Simulated scan of single mutants.
Amino acid sequence: MNELAGIADRLPLTTQIQPASRPRTSEDLEDAVRDLTRHFTYLAYTVATRDRQAQRYPRRYTPQLREGTAALARAAKPTGRALASLGEAVTATGHLHHLARNRPGPEHADDLQHTLTVLDGHITRARTHLFTAARQLRADAHRLLATQTPVSPAALTTPGVPTAASSPRGHSR
């Protein structure tokens, strides 16, 4: 959840998106897409793996694991939407690249401003979806922790390790 919010925080802000900053914006988007793809893959992998585990070991698959898996699956929706918005942002950045290489014509300034506005909209939507996924995961984690069955004190006790025969250096004398 913190990683998703971190990706959102690293996305360029409206005030940072200018024609002159296009290369930096492209690099920021590249990093965000790479990081978000890795997290989206983790969500899909974890849900699929836990589904296989539930089939193979139904008695070991606790209600808490089931709820945790459902929480990760729910986070896939806003995460996927963020990834789609970043895909649209990459397309807009490509259009900016094209505009920067063309000779300015009568509609060049309007085209440039429109593309910057579109790019900003896609980045803003991606940021919103990422924060939504992070908030949702955080709320699910708090809910799962609140309903978690407490561990008995006996389960937390570790067996003692005999120390009488050992020297401070760990060798027997």
Rank of each mutant, 00 (worst) to 15 (best):
Y42K: 09
L43K: 04
L43Y: 08
L43E: 02
L43F: 12
A44V: 13
Y45W: 12
T46E: 13
V47T: 15
A48H: 08
R50L: 11
R52Q: 12
Q53C: 03
Q55D: 14
R59N: 10
T62G: 00
R66S: 13
E67G: 09
T69N: 10
A70T: 07
A70H: 07
A71G: 01
A71F: 03
A71V: 01
L72K: 04
A73G: 07
A73N: 11
A75D: 00
A75L: 04
A76R: 15
P78Y: 03
G80A: 06
G80D: 02
R81E: 15
R81P: 01
R81V: 10
R81T: 15
S85L: 03
S85A: 14
S85F: 03
G87I: 09
G87Y: 09
G87V: 09
E88N: 13
A89R: 02
V90N: 08
T91N: 14
A92R: 06
T93E: 12
T93C: 13
T93F: 00
G94V: 07
G94M: 06
G94R: 08
G94D: 06
H95A: 10
H95E: 13
H97C: 06
H98N: 12
A100T: 03
N102V: 13
N102K: 09
R103Y: 05
P104F: 01
P104N: 07
G105Y: 04
G105T: 07
G105P: 04
P106H: 10
P106V: 12
